[in-house]
Nucleic acid binder design. Structure first.
Lengths: 196, 196
DNA sequence: AGAGCCATGTAAGAGGTTACATGATTAG
DNA sequence: CTAATCATGTAACCTCTTACATGGCTCT
């Protein structure tokens, strides 16, 4: 029933930077615990669950990511035979994978454009896995965005260097507006979160 | 001095969808007029001009895009020999290219996330090439974003279907906040634009 | 003499999209 | 009988990033 498919003894290659899709997979794996979970089940969470509102992940890329996560030792894989159905590859989070996930969950995003995807994912999985860290995550993200907004305001006050001043102001004002909107939204989180 | 490098007579392949980088190249080519412009000069506009605030384009990709635009007949290319310097490939916008550019300039973007890159580019080149269309572009974009904001508000009012209601509300509220911020910014454009 | 500009690229790889391949089972 | 579900992928194709290759010239 369990035939673990991994090279023992060989040194694992150091994992490269993971993207939001891969981190979200680690998050789902963490939710499944020691029982593990297989690819098709994971795919359903992206196509039918609330995760799909945040990120879109086609099955092709999903299986590709799982292979990569396995190759770098962040998850393990073993085949589960079923009488009536195709075999499943059940994946389980390893210690390394869990540490990678926890590290990612604690890092606020640096740019406003990463709020929509990366930060929403962090929020989603922090709520599910380590809800006690919610306040801290929001607070840290808040301070990053505040610093960004300050820096943008400072840049807008810089003297006009040439004829492209209007274009520059346009861009800066948009970025500032988006950052302020994200900040307001962040604050609205803490108040709504209170009564759960 | 001029040795045009293109297949005559052969039917041109229908151009595929172009990305923002390629459209911005068409925009710069349009600004250069019949005199044309060469790759290195274009690269400078991305690294040193106000365009660089909006989009980042490395020389590798820039030359790659130029080849593609030439292949689809949106620009022409001819070599200009220089005594002291390396040869230049001077590019000129064709009629097809100009029509493609004009069409793109008149289309508002459909999603809020495209405001930062695509719409800023449209704004940038409309100001330079067809400033009389500025008001219309802004007005059309405004109506698209207003409809989006309405639709988001409607979705937020939908009854909670399951336990993921809070997550869904979080996502919707962020998208709504970003859309409203873009709308406010859009409105601030018309007022600032008046005295130029 | 060395740095950097001029001008055009290539090479290598990561990451993603879209569509299809397979083959059995179950629901309408 | 048809369609969808289960389960895992492959193939082909874009795009983008990062870094480097080339080779002569100008500036300090």
């Amino acid at each position: 029933m369990t035939s673990t498919t991994r090279h023992t003894g060989s040194t694992l290659p150091r994992p490269p930077r993971l993207g939001p899709a891969e981190h979200s997979l680690l998050g789902l794996l963490a939710g499944a615990g020691d029982a593990g979970i297989h690819g098709y089940d994971l795919a359903r969470q992206y196509s039918h669950g609330p995760l799909g509102e945040i990120i879109r992940l086609e099955s092709g890329m999903l299986y590709h990511h799982l292979k990569k996560l396995d190759r770098y030792g962040l998850i393990t894989t073993h085949v589960e035979h079923q009488p009536d159905r195709p075999d499943r590859q059940v994946h389980t989070l390893t210690g390394i994978g869990r540490r990678q996930l926890d590290h990612w969950l604690r890092e606020p995003v640096r740019a406003t454009r990463e709020i929509r995807l990366d930060f929403l994912l962090k929020l989603f999985f922090t709520r599910r896995l380590v809800p006690t860290h919610l306040d801290e995550l929001v607070a840290q993200q808040r301070s990053v965005l505040t610093a960004l907004a300050d820096s943008l305001r400072a840049q807008m006050r810089e003297p006009a260097t040439s004829d492209d001043a209007i274009e520059r102001q346009m861009v800066l004002r948009l970025r500032q507006a988006q950052t302020e909107a994200a900040l307001t939204w962040l604050d609205s989180l803490s108040t709504t979160e209170d009564d759960t």
